[in-house]
Design a protein around this nucleic acid. Structure first.
Length: 432
RNA sequence: GGAAGGGUGGCCGAGUGGUCGAUGGCGAUGGUCUUGAAAACCAUUGUGGGGCAACUCACCGUGGGUUCGAAUCCCACCCCUUCCGCCA
């Protein structure tokens, strides 16, 4: 959520920025509720002070009947007021949580994803003098993908990945873990991009794939039921991304400043219900209920948050270039960055069979919007306590990445070449 | 699945219904001492809200209840730990 004090001080700006993101937020109503709530709170607290004072008088000796009478009167009045306060507080909180994070001024204003800006295109889509095959055709030719049997066993949007595709996924995982764990690489990217952040490498993490309702709700990620699977029997949710169990890791904690930046590269199987996407991307492995994903998550001090976000993007670009996939750098517009985001970038890889650029990466920067709900704070050297900033970014979403790689690296005679950088993780193998 | 024990401040850990927002230790911050550091000693130090402020309120896992008054008593729930059983 947003800081209520900020909303009080910037009423019109909050209205404007919320509108830019496509949220109809009743800021006036929120501030009215805020005032009512505070007025009531003052009254209740005065009443409680009287109660405490009255009780204090009765310490030790025998309480007089008058004091007990007074205590009872206060008790009744308090109970009434507190009941009413609960209602006011409830609607205040609902309104406050409905306010999205404020986008930075550099985020392009737009009402649909059409207004996203293609900042640059890196790499050339490969030129084929034949009709490039889809992932499912290549998968069938090389016995890499079995969707029919997965459907028989688990339903639509599941897949058995096999053979060389699996080895390639493991190679990507190794490659990313090695790269992000290498301080020299991080240092170079920090320097090349003129960033004012630490060169500390990312720590690999295998997080839980499930989480309880309480932390999940606190993570400010919305539409839980639409996106995420729930295990009713045990009140657990399946990760839709390692992001969920990484950002909540320090839920309700105050951390010493010397821990920062906290940088994780997580690897988790991710589960998504994909409700409302019937018929969309049904072919192949672009959109599945289950896929494996590498995800960067950083917790930072407020002043380094934006550069950390830029580092995430620099890493994404570096990884894409290393693996040899052409991509577009998309600065997402206000409508597309999502409620908790202050800014966001997508990388869209080239998919030759469809002849389209399609989203494979996202980088999100939430400022302190997410950490305010999660209550994750930093204790500064001088003792001050501040909310941390959070940023997350896709390392590689496996199924989409595998699809992009095999489609971009196919040959006229139907072979699939393996990107150079992965070969050392695959016994030097040059093709699948 | 069966049984037992727990959840208190940045961390550890005390806490007979009123003098407890909470002893003590660690850590942190400031100071004394020292060429400097360490050690020792002294002082300060929970979080969040309201108020310009003095100040005030809430918070001892969560939610109810008893009471003039609850960290403390009662009820329900959540979570954790240990043992047994089962299991990769």
């Amino acid at each position: 959520m947003l800081d209520i004090q900020f909303i009080r001080d910037n009423r019109e700006l909050v209205k404007e920025k919320s509108k830019q993101k496509g949220y109809s937020v009743n800021v006036d109503e929120l501030l009215r509720a805020d005032e009512e709530r505070r007025g009531m709170l003052t009254f209740i607290e005065a009443l409680r002070a009287r109660r405490n004072e009255n009780a204090d008088k009765m310490k030790g000796g025998k309480p007089s009947p008058e004091l007990i009478e007074e205590g009872k009167r206060i008790k009744t009045e308090l109970a009434e007021m507190e009941e009413r306060f609960k209602g006011v507080e409830g609607s205040f909180t609902t309104l406050l949580k409905s306010v999205p994070n404020m986008p930075f001024d550099f985020v392009p204003v737009g009402v649909t994803e059409e207004e996203n800006q293609v900042v640059k295109t890196v790499g050339e889509p490969p030129h084929f003098d034949f009709t490039p095959k889809h992932d499912y055709q290549l998968g069938a030719d090389h016995d890499l993908i079995d969707k029919e049997r997965a459907t028989k066993i688990a339903g639509s949007r599941f897949v058995y990945l096999k053979g060389g595709l699996v080895r390639m996924q493991l190679a990507i995982m190794q490659f990313v873990m090695q790269t992000l764990g290498d301080e020299k690489v991080i240092a170079r990217l920090v320097q090349e991009n003129g960033l004012d952040v630490s060169t500390k490498p990312f720590t690999p993490v295998l997080p839980p794939a499930m989480l309880r309702t309480e932390p999940y709700e606190a993570s400010a990620r919305l539409n839980a039921e639409e996106v995420t699977y729930k295990i009713e029997q045990d009140d657990l949710w399946l990760n839709a991304s390692a992001e969920h169990t990484l950002c909540t890791m320090y839920w309700n904690e105050i951390l010493p400043e010397d821990m920062f930046p906290i940088r994780y590269i997580g690897y988790s199987t991710s589960f998504r219900r994909e409700a409302g996407t019937y018929g969309k991307d049904e072919e192949g492995i672009f959109r599945l209920h289950q896929f494996d994903k590498l995800e960067m998550e950083s917790l930072t001090t407020p002043e380094t948050g934006l550069d950390e976000h830029k580092l995430h993007i620099a890493i994404q670009e570096y990884l894409m270039q290393q693996i040899g996939l052409p991509y577009q750098f998309i600065q997402k517009c206000t409508a597309d960055i999502g409620k908790p985001n202050a800014a966001g970038v997508d990388l869209n890889a080239w998919f030759p069979a469809q002849g389209k650029w399609r989203e494979t990466h996202t980088a999100d920067y939430m400022t302190d919007y997410q950490s305010r709900d999660l209550k994750i704070r930093v204790r500064r050297q001088d003792g001050r306590i501040e909310l941390v900033h959070t940023a997350d970014a896709t390392g590689f979403a496996m199924s989409r990445t595998l699809k992009a790689i095999i489609e971009n690296n196919q040959t006229a005679d139907g072979r699939i070449m393996i990107p150079e950088v992965l070969r050392s993780f695959m016994n030097g193998q040059a093709e699948i």
